[in-house]
Simulated assay, not measured.
Amino acid sequence: MENTNDMPLGSQAQVEAIVRAAESALEVRRRYQFFVWTQSNLQALLPHQLTICGAYQRQARELVFDAFNSVSVPEALLLGFTNPRGALMQQLQGRWLDARCRPVRLAVSELDGVAVAEHRAALEAAGFSSLVAHGLSRPQRPSEMESFFVFGQQAVAGSGAQQQCHHLELLMPHIHSTWHRVQVQERELRNLPDTGSPLSAAASAQQRAGSGAIVTGRERQILGWLREGMSNQQIGEVLGISALTVKNHVQKILRKLNAANRAQAVARAMTMNLLDRSPVDAGTSD
């Protein structure tokens, strides 16, 4: 396990990337926007394929976690990461506190104890090599966490790993405030209808017309495979259709969800609860 020391920022490009990430965070209001932000602006500074976000909720009186993943991750592993009282998150938070609330990186193999053995094996099987954790606590009360984040990485090595931890320390105030803003906005939207955004209009239409009225069963299935990071060719081979047919489906999905790219389409589909089922079970009707 490593904890960071004061380090130079590095190249001018890295400085500019940090500024862009901080500035673009101000525009993030929704859950899908947060996912897109982490997959674009944060990737250059902290490459990762799994993001675990925790925010303290006063009603629950504990951190409540959510997960974003750009690669396939077993459901049991996601449950382990989102269980605030589970052995996995307790160990990661303990390592962070031991590092005096500085960013910590540990190899997946460093997860110790019988209680996390299954999670360690699942992470290794999914190709993850390291975890980076950081958060924010109340002033003078390090154990009273306001937020806690874990980033799962599949391949990071060398001095760049320490540099990325330093980037995370610089960006943590922005990540913290952005995630809390998203939580507030999502709670408000659950209580008050938002008729102004394209996503809300699509979600409302979906609810009025019933499941699948906007996105077909085949499109839901393709969205599921997009979430797994598969190409048009790979999806076509699985479904027994041509890559061109898959491309046409993807273009329809982007139009229906008013998404600019695949990552945004997946994020919006997640917000609309279109990906609760596996791609195999999502149906095949056109």
Rank of each mutant, 00 (worst) to 15 (best):
S40C: 00
Q43T: 09
A44H: 10
A44T: 15
A44Q: 13
L46D: 05
L46A: 06
L46Q: 02
P47I: 12
P47L: 09
Q49P: 00
L50F: 14
L50M: 15
C53Q: 10
G54N: 01
G54K: 01
G54L: 01
G54E: 02
G54A: 03
A55D: 08
A55N: 14
Y56D: 01
Q57F: 10
R58V: 15
R58W: 11
Q59V: 13
Q59S: 13
Q59K: 10
A60D: 11
R61E: 14
R61A: 15
E62W: 02
E62Q: 11
E62S: 08
L63M: 07
L63V: 02
V64F: 02
F65V: 04
D66W: 05
D66I: 07
F68L: 13
F68P: 00
N69H: 15
N69D: 14
S70A: 13
S70W: 14
S70V: 14
V71S: 10
S72E: 14
S72G: 12
S72K: 11
S72T: 15
V73R: 03
V73F: 09
V73L: 13
P74A: 08
P74N: 04
E75N: 11
E75K: 14
E75I: 12
A76P: 00
L77Q: 02
L77V: 09
L77R: 03
L77E: 02
L79T: 13
G80I: 06
G80C: 08
G80D: 10
G80W: 01
F81T: 06
T82P: 06
T82M: 05
T82K: 01
N83A: 10
P84M: 03
R85M: 09
R85W: 07
R85G: 15
G86L: 06
G86C: 11
G86E: 04
A87C: 09
A87R: 04
L88D: 05
L88N: 06
M89S: 04
M89P: 05
Q90K: 13
Q90H: 12
L92R: 03
L92T: 06
Q93L: 08
G94I: 00
G94F: 09
R95C: 11
W96H: 08
W96P: 01
L97K: 02
L97W: 04
L97Y: 07
D98L: 14
A99C: 08
R100G: 02
R100Y: 12
C101S: 15
C101I: 13
R102A: 14
R102L: 15
P103A: 09
R105I: 14
A107D: 12
A107F: 12
V108Q: 03
V108E: 03
S109Q: 13
S109A: 15
E110M: 07
D112H: 08
G113K: 05
G113S: 03
G113A: 08
G113I: 10
V114L: 10
V114N: 07
V114I: 12
A115P: 07
A115M: 09
A115Y: 01
A117M: 10
A117N: 00
E118W: 03
E118G: 05
E118P: 00
H119Y: 12
H119W: 10
H119T: 05
R120I: 02
A121P: 00
A122W: 06
A122N: 04
L123K: 05
L123M: 13
E124F: 00
E124S: 08
E124P: 04
A125H: 05
A125Q: 10
A126I: 09
